[in-house]
Design a protein around this nucleic acid. Structure first.
Length: 264
DNA sequence: AACACGACCTGGTAGC
DNA sequence: TGCTACCAGGTCGTGT
């Protein structure tokens, strides 16, 4: 699930529903999620303190607590944060629970258990530019891009350059801009980079909206995804624009989906 | 600096 | 039914 849009939706939800609430205690059910830190130390840091602020940095979530501690959560491949009560939680895979006052709570749900929950101590993550901030201008994007010779898809997924795009939205942005994922990013014309910049912002904004809605209406997810994804996961199916068959290839060990007709 | 690949984990699905 | 193989939204460490 989590690329930037899903993480942003999670953060918005937490701000609305849980910011300002008192955390009575944190319960870590799967100790390996805190490695190499000690789970007891993190539980202790979350004992009886208020959740002051929820911050997103790229795909990282930072929970600022009133006692000064900062919890750093990364959802990785399958993580999610749900607010109690939520029917989805009945199927287990719950790795940690922030118990709030009353019957509320924040549940760290993660079937694959690759996600992490740690105390942010010395080194907070310093990712690349967040495409949803005003700093992400076409000019800045071009200057970053011109310095790299990476294939466009790998450049977009490099979190040290841009932070937030993952396998789905990198592919979707390239489709929207009509760019072949293998093309060296630095070789693209300014005009095409400008189009790509707009595509990135557009794809992410649409997806944030959709991800946010899917919280209140889980059924929305499937419907919206089916309509909105143009290439991701559609190998063998016809391109919605030109009808040619969508292809799959491997880049950086990950699947890339693209239309050879629309993306040149 | 760029790339490939394995590791970290679990679960779903296709194929035999 | 049950086995095997492969696939999955992310990142990190290691080796070439």
């Amino acid at each position: 699930m989590p690329e930037l849009p899903e993480v942003e939706a999670v953060c918005r939800r937490l701000r609305e529903e849980a910011a300002g609430e008192k955390i009575v205690k944190l319960e870590i059910l799967r100790p390996s999620i805190t490695k190499p830190q000690n789970p007891e130390a993190i539980e202790a840091a979350c004992h009886n303190t208020n959740l002051k602020q929820v911050e997103r940095r790229g795909k990282n979530i930072l929970l600022h607590l009133a006692n000064g501690a900062v919890i750093h959560i990364h959802l990785r491949m399958t993580g999610n944060l749900y607010l109690i009560p939520d029917r989805r939680l009945l199927t287990s895979a719950v790795r940690a629970v922030f118990h709030l006052r009353g019957h509320k709570g924040i549940v760290f749900y993660d079937p694959r258990a690759l996600g992490t929950l740690r105390l942010a101590t010395d080194s907070l993550p310093e990712p690349g530019i967040d495409p949803l901030t005003p700093n992400f201008t076409p000019a800045l994007f071009q200057s970053l891009a011109k310095k790299s010779r990476k294939p466009a898809k790998l450049f977009l997924m490099d979190q040290d350059k841009l932070s937030g795009l993952g396998n789905i939205y990198a592919a979707e942005a390239l489709f929207r801009a009509g760019i072949d994922p293998r093309k060296s990013i630095g070789q693209l014309s300014s005009r095409r980079l400008t189009a790509l910049h707009a595509a990135i912002v557009g794809v992410l904004k649409d997806a944030v909206h959709s991800a946010y809605l899917s919280y209140s209406d889980p059924g929305h997810m499937l419907a919206a995804e089916e309509e909105s994804l143009m290439v991701y996961g559609r190998a063998g199916e016809p391109c919605r624009t030109c009808g040619r068959i969508i292809r799959r290839m491997i880049q950086g060990g990950r699947s890339t989906f693209y239309c050879a007709e629309c993306q040149t």
